[in-house]
Design a protein around this nucleic acid. Sequence first.
DNA 1: CTTTTGATGATACAGCCGTACCATCATCGT
DNA 2: ACGATGATGGTACGGCTGTATCATCAAAAG
Lengths: 223, 223
Amino acid sequence: MPKRVDHAERRTEIAEALVRVAGRRGLHAVGMRDVAAEAGVSLRLVQYYFETKEKLLLFGLEHLAERFGERVAARVRAAGDDPGPRAMVEALLTAALPVDEESRTFHHLYTSYAVLSVHDRALAAQPFIKNPDAAEDAVTELLRQAQEADLLEPGLDPRLEAVGLLAMSAGLGTGVLVGQRRPESAAAVLQHHLDRIFRTTTPAPGQLPGGRRRRLGTAPPTR
Amino acid sequence: MPKRVDHAERRTEIAEALVRVAGRRGLHAVGMRDVAAEAGVSLRLVQYYFETKEKLLLFGLEHLAERFGERVAARVRAAGDDPGPRAMVEALLTAALPVDEESRTFHHLYTSYAVLSVHDRALAAQPFIKNPDAAEDAVTELLRQAQEADLLEPGLDPRLEAVGLLAMSAGLGTGVLVGQRRPESAAAVLQHHLDRIFRTTTPAPGQLPGGRRRRLGTAPPTR
DNA sequence: CTTTTGATGATACAGCCGTACCATCATCGT
DNA sequence: ACGATGATGGTACGGCTGTATCATCAAAAG
């Protein structure tokens, strides 16, 4: 038998080439030849490891989602050991904001895939249900924990708040992506809405009424 | 001189054909021949009225935005004569939710254009700044009016709330579009967040504390 | 009536796309 | 050493795309 190659690794390399070139020129403008050139391999090889373009795109989306998941996890970890629920919610919500090149590419391509999935059953099947639902569950659970620790304003429904926050983050992300909104503005809006959900004082002593106050969470992730 | 044709009207017809076929099969899959067939004219005519595909797409986007503006206006009008600020905000926010075929198409294509505009300067130039900014100003102004009429919870920043609500509406719309969320769920989330912004009792007499209460606005637009 | 000219039709062209086919190389098992 | 076989290269094919070219028709102007 001849040279054995780690197919999984090769597929990953090619998928990352796809992500790079798609992020640079737009997913609609990407052909197999572009991917091959970007990966430094021949067109034939792209065909060899992904028999069809559709399979390449599908794998590209999965890879993108995976990489994004790792990014979020890293953000959460960077928020410190056992950070408060607010810091974790912040990390989750702000990770999707297109503030740097990587998150811009992610948001851009993920939206591209979302648009394609409207009429492509194969794309619609898995990731656009699973990942957002997971994020929704995670934020909901964090809010529920915060609620039990009496860190939230009273009378809130964790699930409804989580859904709203995630949708807001996604919408703000799109605004940033198309240049309508500056990243700092989007982050500020998010912060403001978190301020309206999380209690701004420790449950204990005197209440100061008006004005802007310190928040409870720990590290600001990027902005 | 020969037969004179109303160019503006013809262009509109062709643009609507573009919108229809793009809504059916996705903007990425639309060619000039498809548009011509859908409009019932020859390929040559599409070329004749829009010299290039890029100009056709551009005009299609403008037309789409215009039609959507009319739809929102109709929604607001349908909310009654001089409806409360909340009803108007509701009308604005829920108009963008993909609940029927028309709004689905709108949301779908508008998102497609947004993705394209990331790398296409011509598309990015006009509409993705102007229209959302107009919506933002409108909602902000409505919230400001509501604030003056003491219809809002105290201590709110109308602009920040408006931006957040619009982003949330857009994000929920995308969720509905890709089949992750049911339209009723999205509408419910929106309602819930409006409940947290607008006062739920008339400013006058006794305050009942907990529980779900009647809201102030008039007609529910669709959901 | 003829000429001008806007509106339309048919079709050709060059280029790109995804895919398929055929050949070659290199390596490992025997 | 040799042949089986995985990995790769090169390239051609059919189809589709946007655009350009050429021709024709019909109506208004002289």
